[in-house]
Design a protein around this nucleic acid. Structure first.
Length: 404
RNA sequence: GUGGGUGUAGCUCAGUUGGUUAGAGCACCAGUUUGUGGCACUGGGGGUCGUGGGUUCGAUUCCCAUCACCCACCCCA
């Protein structure tokens, strides 16, 4: 038997309903915030991801589905959504056009990782990217939009925020942190020592007990921000406060992708195992320029559909649709005509096999139909159909032409 | 990439200290009611015991390999 590749899943019953509901709900809310749909290719030039996500990141360094195509081009399946959208934004010259452009998207992402709970090799994200708006109010509105989406889906979460500073203040802080880490490096674990070189801010996030105590008085980015970053971060927190949105200030919060500046945030769920981030994002004011466009401020986020699929509370749905069946094989032609007429406006299931009335009712009941309609011997003779409402239990016989 | 766990019916799992036809519950189909759903009872269909190799007279059971899934590290949505 040929089976799906490791870490790749078919989305079918029963999760398919939740999947579509998540995408529909998120899309609807994004549209209300002024976002329009964008679809970009799944396959892009590898260089795009190297330059945007960053070559030092694990995502690009070891997790990409990268290969040489038949034309000799180095290409990769997208490991995340932002890079392709920024590329499209620049390619269509919207950076030169100016103004604000907001996009939402959803689709599969690919990372060659070891699968575990909440982590697949092909997974699906819904995300938004806003270009051309430098105001921190846009950051706030994005957080508010994610909150709206999760609230609509009935998902519990907590919010973590941080500021990663800008080219003015981040490098200075980074130096200061590295210096501090070198002072205590002998007490730190193996992983931490490696991270001092690759991604020093990640060291702050180490789970090791002894590391944690040693790191307790490490310098923190939010206390080393330049004036502009500090003022923006203050505005953001006061906006959240005034809207009654609870959040945790997390100086250890680092985004895994290199392009982030200033605002960084994460939505976390306590109910889904170790991979607890259900949405993440932030501001990336440098990325458009990095990729060859005119400098354009931007902010965005993505949420992991598979990670929230179990948490979604689906709206209650009652019985709906029509079940049609026969007890005499000759009646099937009539049934099919009725089915086609009814399908103009509702869901219709047709059972082709001749069965007992009891069996038809049982089947109709099980599939959640509201109406069960059957043609038996007597109905066949009188050109009638027997109709029962499975909710009210009312039943009647009507002429085949008058069945509505 | 590292570590641990699990693969037996559509699903959840039992079982064989190695020995004829491998079981249960749920689900499915039928009947009890020759035309009345959700309940009950009775019967029925359905399994290369993940795959490949080894040991053995004999392997679903023991050994090895492999694949997949699950959980954690790492990383991240």
């Amino acid at each position: 038997m040929i089976q799906a590749l490791r870490g790749m899943k078919d989305i079918m019953s029963p999760e398919n309903e939740r999947f579509v509901y998540i995408v529909d709900t998120a899309s609807e809310i994004a549209k209300r915030y002024g976002y329009e749909y964008i679809e970009t290719p799944l396959l892009e030039e590898t260089a795009l991801f190297k330059r945007s996500v960053g070559e030092s990141s694990d995502i690009v360094g070891k997790e990409m589905y990268q290969f040489i195509d038949k034309g000799g081009h180095d290409v990769s399946l997208r490991p995340e959504g932002t890079a392709g959208i920024v590329r499209a934004f620049i390619q269509s010259k919207l950076d030169k056009k100016g103004g604000v452009h907001r996009f939402y998207y959803h689709g599969p992402m690919f990372r060659y990782e070891r699968p575990q709970k909440g982590r697949l090799r092909e997974f699906h994200q819904f995300g938004c990217e806003s270009f051309g708006e430098d105001s921190v109010y846009e950051d706030f509105n994005i957080i508010l939009m994610i909150k709206d989406i999760f609230d609509a889906l009935g998902i519990g979460y907590s919010i973590k925020i941080n500021s990663l500073g800008c080219p003015e203040c981040m490098p200075g802080y980074r130096e200061q942190l590295i210096e501090h880490l070198h002072d205590i490096k002998d007490g730190l674990c193996e992983d931490c020592n490696r991270r001092i070189e690759t991604n020093p801010i990640r060291v702050l996030d180490c789970k090791n007990e002894t590391c944690r105590t040693l790191l307790a008085d490490s310098p923190v980015i939010v206390q080393n921000l330049c004036e502009a970053c500090d003022s923006d971060f203050g505005t953001l927190t006061s906006m959240l406060d005034s809207h009654g949105i609870e959040y945790e200030l997390d100086p250890k919060l680092v985004r895994g992708l290199d392009y982030y500046t200033r605002t960084a945030f994460e939505f976390v769920s306590g109910e889904i195992g170790a991979q607890s981030a259900i949405a993440g994002g932030g501001r990336y004011n440098r990325l458009v320029e990095f990729l060859g466009g005119k400098p354009t401020p931007a902010v965005g986020f993505a949420l992991g559909i598979e990670r929230i699929i179990e948490l979604v509370k689906l709206p209650e749905k009652g019985r709906s649709g029509v079940y049609l069946g026969v007890m005499e094989p000759e009646a099937i032609g009539t049934i099919l005509k009725i089915a086609h007429k009814k399908r103009a406006e509702e869901r219709v299931y047709v059972e082709y096999k001749k069965r007992s009335l009891k069996a038809h009712l049982k089947a109709a009941d099980r599939m959640g139909a509201k109406i069960c309609a059957v043609i038996g011997e007597e109905e066949l003779q009188n050109s009638e159909i027997w109709v029962k409402d499975l909710e009210t239990k009312e039943e009647r016989r009507v002429g085949v032409d008058r069945f509505e």
